[in-house]
Amino acid sequence: MITHIALFKLKDGIERSSPSVVEAEKFARAVGSHVPELVDWRVGWNMVDRDISYDFAVIGVLPDLAALEKYQANAFHQESVQKWREISDWVVADLEDS
């Protein structure tokens, strides 16, 4: 199993209530129902504000690397990525579960 984690930090001057952020969140939440390879999909806003914190996170579980590649190429996922690219910077980690 692969656990895919992406952490998003909103760009300076962009607020959670901004229409572009609301739209990006909507897409992020829907990825789980548009990517059949995902075994589990969780998303949410960070609850604690710290200097080193990111604002929003997605966590997906996939059965293997082939499924991760399909997830990355999925058209709906790519549309979601584009929406986040406009409003945030992010980091990604893909963990192999043992």
Rank of each mutant, 00 (worst) to 15 (best):
D12Q: 07
V31N: 07
N46Y: 06
D55S: 08
R50E: 10
A67P: 00
F8R: 10
S17Y: 00
P19W: 15
Y71E: 01
V35Y: 13
V43Q: 10
A93T: 04
V21P: 04
P63N: 04
L95H: 11
S20W: 13
V43M: 07
G60A: 02
A66K: 01
D12V: 06
A6N: 11
S18R: 03
V58Y: 12
A73H: 01
R42V: 03
R85G: 01
G13A: 12
D97S: 14
F56G: 03
S20P: 00
M47P: 05
I2K: 15
V39M: 09
E15K: 09
D97K: 04
V92M: 12
M47F: 15
F27Q: 10
W41E: 05
W90R: 08
I59A: 08
S88T: 01
F56K: 03
A67M: 06
V61Q: 09
A73V: 00
K70D: 06
V35F: 15
E15G: 03
V58H: 13
I14P: 15
P19L: 14
A30P: 08
P63R: 07
V58M: 11
P63I: 02
P19R: 08
L7P: 03
K83F: 02
A67C: 04
E15F: 08
D94L: 09
V39K: 05
A24S: 13
S88A: 15
S33N: 01
W84C: 12
I14A: 14
Y71K: 04
E69T: 07
W45M: 06
P63K: 08
L95W: 15
I52Q: 10
V91T: 05
I2W: 14
V81P: 03
E23D: 11
G32K: 01
M47H: 10
L95N: 06
F8P: 03
V61R: 13
S18I: 08
L10T: 02
T3G: 11
V22F: 10
H34N: 09
P19D: 05
F56N: 04
W45G: 01
A57V: 08
D12S: 13
V81S: 07
I5P: 12
L95E: 07
Q72N: 11
V43K: 07
E25R: 04
V48K: 10
K26L: 02
F76C: 05
T3F: 15
V58T: 10
Q72A: 13
S88P: 14
K9P: 07
V81L: 14
F56M: 03
M1K: 10
L38E: 06
A30T: 10
R85K: 13
V35C: 15
P63A: 05
I2D: 12
R16L: 06
L65K: 02
V39T: 12
Q72D: 10
G44I: 03
I5T: 09
A75E: 09
A66S: 04
V48E: 08
L68G: 01
F27P: 14
D94P: 10
V43I: 12
D40Q: 06
A75K: 13
L65H: 10
K26G: 13
Q78E: 02
W90F: 13
R42H: 08
E79L: 13
N46H: 02
E25G: 00
V22I: 12
F8A: 13
L95M: 06
S17R: 01
S98Y: 14
A24W: 14
A28I: 02
D64N: 03
V39I: 11
L62E: 02
R16K: 11
L62F: 04
A6C: 13
R42I: 09
F56T: 01
D64A: 00
D40C: 00
H34L: 07
E86M: 04
M1F: 08
